[in-house]
């Protein structure tokens, strides 16, 4: 069989915080797309599962100098010394060399939650309960994403189910490897403000590559050197400053 040349892409995102209104479309669209179960009755902000979570962040000033932005925070897809990969004792996490997507295999996961501790972005979540939907809703799950089981960690994988579908489609049409992402993750697709741009950072001509180099674009906790592939943009200085502050414990 002929060996097809594999492209080395780096899938990434640029999120414009100045555009985000905090509507929550992306959060719900993500949960529906990726078969994330509704909260267990006792679940809280700490124990719930939100692959994509929008954090309201304020400037800490008193009314009326108060200002706020909404920060959509998903797995930042670290490209260098990826913390969750380094700590996983099970090899359940890895960086895909062709896409740069940090993948998590729930079936391999042991549930030790080292990765959750290691993740500087709190982008990993643990299944404290069985994934449970109200009776009848199971029939409406997305067949392209497998539900996870109790006792494993999970996180955003840039809607890998959609990448699979795009690959299937491309192969059926007789195309070779899809070089640039021929799909849009659910969050980017659902954003009414078009604040999320997704694409291949390695493709210099792509919007996402151009925007990632734009003025006032930054990454969270870039001082850690993990090279996240999710970029943010804000014209507000306090937002950019906040990005490199370690979260208060």
């Amino acid at each position: 069989m002929e060996q097809t040349e594999q492209s080395k892409s780096r899938y990434g995102m640029v999120v414009d915080l100045d555009k985000c209104t905090g509507c929550g479309d992306c959060v719900v669209a993500c949960a529906i797309e990726n078969n994330v179960a509704p909260a267990e009755q006792k679940a809280t902000e700490r124990t719930g599962i939100t692959w994509l979570r929008v954090y309201p962040v304020t400037n800490g000033e008193a009314f009326p100098a108060h200002d706020a932005v909404f920060v959509p925070m998903m797995c930042q897809q670290c490209g260098h010394h990826t913390p969750c990969v380094s700590v996983c004792p099970q090899n359940a996490v890895e960086v895909d060399p062709t896409t740069g997507i940090v993948g998590q295999i729930p079936q391999r996961c042991l549930g030790c939650r080292y990765c959750m501790t290691a993740c500087p972005f709190h982008a990993r979540y643990f299944n404290w309960w069985d994934p449970e939907w109200p009776a009848g809703t199971e029939a409406q799950l997305n067949p392209d994403v497998a539900p996870r089981m109790r006792g494993v960690a999970e996180k955003c994988n840039f809607c890998h189910g959609r990448l699979h579908a795009a690959r299937t489609r491309a192969a059926a049409e007789g195309k070779s490897n899809i070089a640039s992402p021929a799909y849009t993750p659910a969050c980017a697709e659902s954003c009414p403000a078009q604040a999320i741009v997704f694409g291949d950072l390695a493709d210099e001509s792509s919007d996402v590559a151009r925007l990632s180099k734009a003025h006032d674009t930054f990454r969270f906790l870039s001082k850690l050197g993990t090279e996240p592939k999710v970029y943010y943009h804000s014209a507000k200085e306090w937002v950019r400053k906040m990005a490199d502050q370690s979260p208060a414990v």
């Binding site: 902000e45 939100t50 309201p56």
Partner: peptide, 15 residues
Amino acid sequence: VAPVMSKLFQESNLR
């Protein structure tokens, strides 16, 4: 609202 709206109300403080 659908139970999955807990992502906005219960599992985060977005709403």
